[in-house]
């Protein structure tokens, strides 16, 4: 073998090694991105087998739609908020306030659509306050949202002080609490959200801000305005979630929206969405997460384990997912 051939062979192996490494890296990325989906499928299969098919029965599927609906609606907006990083603990309380005000308006004779719009205004206003505190008072959004949570809870308690709860006149808007209405609403929301997130400058700018706010500003992205938009979008979805929740339950009170913050956060994490936001934020991730949380809650309920084991299993799963999908060294989960 002459030297030329030796060299060629050596070169080829180097290239092969490089290709192999790129392939391995891609495989790792693929695994990380499909793991949440696989997890969801495994859970569905597992519960179907354990409940002898009851899990995928028509009744339970309807129940699943109802159970996951509010969370799915909110995480559509949540994707925008979380893509710029920062946790929000006020989502549940704002939903309660928005739904309470909506109910008050509706009961006072305001037309349904106008009542709903009033609800939207309330939640968008509340989220804008958080955005304002974040933008101009430079307070960590997490802290800002905690303040907002307390303010909203206070307002709800004031509104229901005399009666303890406000009854929503269910019979006049029964069509809202219908599985078909919900599916149509959700599909529309997801479509609009998907386009906004992936194919407009809003979604792209938000991801850039999540990645590096200073670089985004210097590149001409109007950071403050975009932050407002993100909070407003989640505000709209909160109002929609609030409407459906209050119509279904028939009453607005201070327990409305309890546990929602943590469920949304769990959904975000289980779906593989980085809590710091940035370019790795994928629109579908929190939706997958929301489905996973719902399937888990529902399935354990069917097995009669809703409370006894439910929380423990969710907690355990949370740790497993976080530990296996996040690159701990980079501190991607919470910066």
């Amino acid at each position: 073998m002459d030297t030329e051939t030796v060299k060629k062979n050596a070169n080829r192996t180097e290239e092969e090694i490089q290709e192999e490494l790129i392939r391995r890296q891609k495989r790792k990325e693929t695994i990380t991105s499909i793991l949440p989906v696989v997890g969801l499928v495994v859970l569905v299969v597992l519960f179907t087998v354990l409940t002898k098919g009851q899990f995928i029965g028509m009744d339970n599927l309807k129940l699943l739609v109802n159970q996951c609906f509010t969370m799915c609606v909110i995480v559509v907006g949540g994707a925008f908020l979380y893509s710029i990083g920062g946790l929000d603990m006020a989502i549940g309380a704002i939903m309660a306030l928005s739904a309470t005000v909506l109910t008050l308006a509706f009961n006072a004779g305001v037309p349904f659509v106008i009542s709903f719009l009033i609800g939207v205004v309330v939640s968008v206003a509340c989220m804008s306050v958080t955005a304002f505190i974040r933008n101009y008072l430079k307070v960590t959004p997490f802290i800002a949202s905690l303040c907002m949570m307390n303010i909203c809870q206070g307002l709800v308690l004031t509104a229901i002080a005399s009666t303890g709860r406000i009854v929503f006149n269910y019979s006049q808007a029964a069509w809202v609490d219908d599985t078909v209405t919900k599916i149509i609403t959700l599909v529309l929301l997801i479509f609009v959200g998907y386009v906004l997130f992936n194919y407009t400058s809003i979604g792209k700018s938000l991801k850039a801000i999540g990645g590096n706010a200073t670089a985004a500003r210097i590149s001409g992205i109007k950071v403050e305005k975009m932050v407002f938009i993100a909070y407003a979008i989640v505000g709209i979805t909160i109002a929609i979630g609030g409407l459906f929740t209050v119509v279904r339950s028939g009453v607005a009170d201070n327990t409305l929206g309890t546990g929602l913050n943590l469920n949304v956060m769990t959904a975000i994490v289980l779906g593989g969405f980085p809590l710091t936001g940035g370019a790795n934020a994928k629109f579908h991730a929190p939706l997958i997460g929301a489905l996973t949380v719902t399937v888990l809650t529902n399935g354990l309920g069917l097995l009669g384990q809703a409370n006894a084991m439910g929380y423990a299993i969710k907690g355990l799963l949370f740790i497993i997912v976080v530990a296996s999908t996040y690159e701990k060294s980079k501190g991607k989960l919470i910066s």
Partner: peptide, 13 residues
């Protein structure tokens, strides 16, 4: 690294 580029995003972004 702090003001010109987003490290954790693609060249295209």
């Amino acid at each position: 690294d702090n003001e010109s580029i987003i490290l954790n995003a693609s060249i295209q972004d």
